[in-house]
Design a protein around this nucleic acid. Sequence first.
DNA 1: TTGTAAGCGTTATCAG
DNA 2: CTGATAACGCTTACAA
Lengths: 345, 345
Amino acid sequence: MTARPPSRRPGLKAVAQLAGVSVQTVSNVVNAKVHEMSPETRRRVEEAMRELNYTPNSQARGLRVQKTSTLALLLLDPDPLYLADPMTALIISGVGAVAREHGYMVLVHAAHPNQFDRGLFLPILQNRADGSLLLLSGEKSMRRAYVEEAAKLTDHFVILEDIDAPSVCTVSADNHTGSFELTTRLLDAGHRRIAFLGTAVSWPMIEQRFAGYRDALDAAGIAFDPALARFEGEWNAATGASMATQLYGMKEPPTAILAGNDLLAIGAIKALKSSGLRVPEDVAVAGFNDFAFAEHTDPPLTTVRVPGFELGRRAALRLIARIEGTETEPVSERLPVELIARASA
Amino acid sequence: MTARPPSRRPGLKAVAQLAGVSVQTVSNVVNAKVHEMSPETRRRVEEAMRELNYTPNSQARGLRVQKTSTLALLLLDPDPLYLADPMTALIISGVGAVAREHGYMVLVHAAHPNQFDRGLFLPILQNRADGSLLLLSGEKSMRRAYVEEAAKLTDHFVILEDIDAPSVCTVSADNHTGSFELTTRLLDAGHRRIAFLGTAVSWPMIEQRFAGYRDALDAAGIAFDPALARFEGEWNAATGASMATQLYGMKEPPTAILAGNDLLAIGAIKALKSSGLRVPEDVAVAGFNDFAFAEHTDPPLTTVRVPGFELGRRAALRLIARIEGTETEPVSERLPVELIARASA
DNA sequence: TTGTAAGCGTTATCAG
DNA sequence: CTGATAACGCTTACAA
């Protein structure tokens, strides 16, 4: 058996021929301009379309009308497993759901955050998408550069980050408040030395969580000890374990750990337990995101639920509104998060 | 401030004009047919391209050469959170990595498995992609119908399932062997009543794991007890917990549980523990997939690691080979899995 | 080596 | 209400 090339699908012309009308008429049927023809003609055309299994060629149509009906999801992620982070996966799912409802497709494209790479915008530059959703990691200045580049190309983009720029659309979760509340909870429980764990590569979410943590400390009049804040490795349990181990090698170790993400938290818990410490009796540990497993760790993880799916949904809705001109003013939307108090902290 | 439409980007014509050459020459430069012109001309053209930030319009080019340089990832998933399953996310990441290396983009499109929906193939029907990767769930007959439909449209597709059809390309993990080994391990530990947990919606992976389980029982001469096999709900911990609870309400409960996926497993463990049973002393529990958290549950989860990223990679490589005509014979590839023995079973 | 013209499948314009 | 024709941006003959 030998590979068969993709069979050329029938075009408007073929349908027109079969129905005995002009291509224009067929186009009208396709585009539901049905009032411009006799019912009989319409019926014949529709039958011909069915018979040939006709589907419009979106490249041709797009070329003509300058529209792709595609949303680009642009990711800046250090990890080739860019979707390994469940939060990213949830966001994409949300985007996908809205896209489908509105007749759009989703193109996923990623680049590495190490150096500025204009290639991230290839889907836009090559006219493959009508707009884009930006999910960025890396240094703040780098992220800024990407946002500026995006703005240069088109207004049709939404940033999944609570960036401080009035002229762009943003959709984000209120990580600052979530972190503030979580830290306050720890302070209320009597903790005074609270550590914070983040990743080496900067993420907007992490920055805000860190800021919320510091603000809560300030509000309680507790001095921030830089030795208790660690930013290493990536979003995984091993990193969390290693940072926790370091912290508990200190002369004056923390009594609580706020991990920037549930994966870091479970790694920390594991490391602590294997050093003979009890959670939460000896050390309280809290995470972020409320991943599926958080309820089932031992002890169950106290964390902050971030509405990833909803984040993706809202961002996609905003983007489509921009594309279709329904909404012209840039809007910044911040979704509430929810403190999930379980046993670990 | 009011929304600015996407600024029309410069075309070949604009570049040609600026460089003082014909569009043809510019096209030659773009397509690296550099031997067909003087170095000086080439330099001028390249400078003009840089100056205008020229990028080829892929719709126009695609229309002309009948190519999109896009791979469609087609998912049949009951869950709107279709990417919530980390395995799917890993596969997509692998596809994305290969796609980028080879100059392709990835279009993700999903449909529900309840009833046959030709719309799953929209990316192909509308000429948005050069080929597709099929990740299907649902009844076997339904999956078969999709495969047949795909085959009708083009040879350019790869199925992420070990389907028994000689004329199609497939890339899969050896779930059967993994499950066989895991079950054998339980049998070797003396277990005779081993339960199996799956989801309500049928998945190829689950079917093969179930088959491996049954074959291992057969090989050991243990009769299969249908009361010990449950297929309910979706891929989440709550489902696992509910099925485990049911099983331990039986007169003659199992002594071991083989969960079709780690999420089901942690749910089961939680339910068992809260009924006062100890894992693994009273009940052994094993999962599948080796998700990031598996190492950090209590007790650490015995499971089978499935190379999701690699699965995506290989499938994408195969698909690109088909598209580019490098490989014409259909190939079936089955990747090895790895038994990860930890404390839970 | 470079330029000109046709056509990919569609929609928009405008005349019948 | 219908049909011919041009144009979207590009590549591929073919002609200069």
